[in-house]
Computed example of a mutant assay.
Amino acid sequence: MPAPSRILVPVDLSDGSQALIDYAIQLARPFNAALEIIHAWEPPQYVAPDLLVAAPGWNSQSLEQVAVDAATKALNELAAKIQSPPVPLKHRVVVGEATSTILRVAEEGKHDLIIMGTHGRRGLPRLLLGSVAQKIVARAHCPVLTLHLYEAAK
Rank of each mutant, 00 (worst) to 15 (best):
Q45A: 13
A74H: 10
A74Q: 12
H141C: 07
G117M: 04
P30N: 03
A19P: 06
P85G: 00
C142V: 04
P56L: 12
N76C: 07
V87T: 08
E97L: 07
S14Y: 11
L78N: 02
T72A: 11
V95W: 00
L124H: 00
S131I: 05
V53F: 04
H39M: 03
P88E: 03
L27D: 01
L89Q: 01
I21A: 09
V11W: 07
H39A: 01
K135F: 15
L89I: 03
A40K: 09
D15N: 12
A34E: 09
R121L: 11
L124E: 03
L127H: 02
H141G: 14
N32K: 12
F31Y: 15
G109T: 02
A140M: 06
V66K: 13
Y46L: 14
S17Y: 13
V94S: 07
Y46R: 10
L127Q: 05
L113A: 06
L63A: 11
G130P: 03
I25G: 04
L63Q: 05
P56C: 12
S62Y: 15
P10I: 01
H119M: 08
Q18R: 13
L128R: 06
T118D: 07
R121N: 11
V93I: 09
N32G: 10
N32Q: 15
A98Q: 11
V11M: 06
E97W: 05
I25Y: 04
S60N: 15
V132F: 03
K73F: 10
C142Y: 08
G16C: 13
D15Y: 07
R121D: 06
C142S: 08
L127A: 07
Q65W: 13
P125C: 03
L103C: 09
A54D: 15
D22E: 14
I38E: 03
H141S: 13
L113E: 01
L20D: 05
P86T: 04
Q134K: 08
P125D: 08
W58Y: 14
L127M: 06
A48V: 09
D15H: 08
S100M: 10
K73E: 15
Q45L: 10
D112G: 00
D69N: 14
P143A: 00
V94N: 01
